[in-house]
Design a protein around this nucleic acid. Sequence first.
DNA 1: CAGCATCCGTAAGGATACTG
DNA 2: CAGTATCCTTACGGATGCTG
Lengths: 121, 121
Amino acid sequence: MAVSLAQIREKSGEVFTEGCPTRVVLDHIMSKWGVLVLLALTDGTHRWGELRREVEGISEKMLASTLRTLEADGLVERTSFPEVPPRVEYSLTDLGRDLMERMLPLVDWVAANAGRVIPVG
Amino acid sequence: MAVSLAQIREKSGEVFTEGCPTRVVLDHIMSKWGVLVLLALTDGTHRWGELRREVEGISEKMLASTLRTLEADGLVERTSFPEVPPRVEYSLTDLGRDLMERMLPLVDWVAANAGRVIPVG
DNA sequence: CAGCATCCGTAAGGATACTG
DNA sequence: CAGTATCCTTACGGATGCTG
């Protein structure tokens, strides 16, 4: 392992401290639905309804809440068009894309190794 | 972005499907306490009491539960020594170290950018 | 279509006390 | 020291109905 915990601490300082920004953001992006929504947006812009269908199992409430959180975090951008019927599109911001560049290898690894970790029944 | 969602789907196929192994493991390792415990173990072996103190805010119940889950996932190894008073040590398995190699860049990024994402109050 | 408001059940998780 | 057992509260999150 190239990076030691001490090195992480140098930069973050407070990953292990309660209520620190790092923990808060970590909780957002690593939440059950946060990852999936971010993943869905990784290949580009999506409409509300698309996300709802794409992220299987998510309720409207959680989709709305997740999107609002990620938007407030500056990771997701919301664009609404003044049309009837209304059209709203969501996409990653630069910050969000930056984040996903780090998250994709992880998700990739999990997807590849999930079978070894949790024996497929 | 080098990797597209389509490419992820090729490999994982079912990240977006409910109850798929990938989602389960993702939920374990990306859970509030899962990440922190894994991070704490990244720099080597730790005893129960060390982890308890290191991961600030975690309750005994959650530490036990988190460790048991990660152990069952084959990511963490538990070694108990037949001494009085008892001594138990936890460390990452090879699989766990492999995982953390992918997770560290992400945590690193979050630690570095949390201030931009969540304005520090 | 894209949401918000409301109600409500479940279960994650905290605090405490106890044990090998 | 390293947990387990128990109780109890909060809040996550689902279902439904309504609105611009």
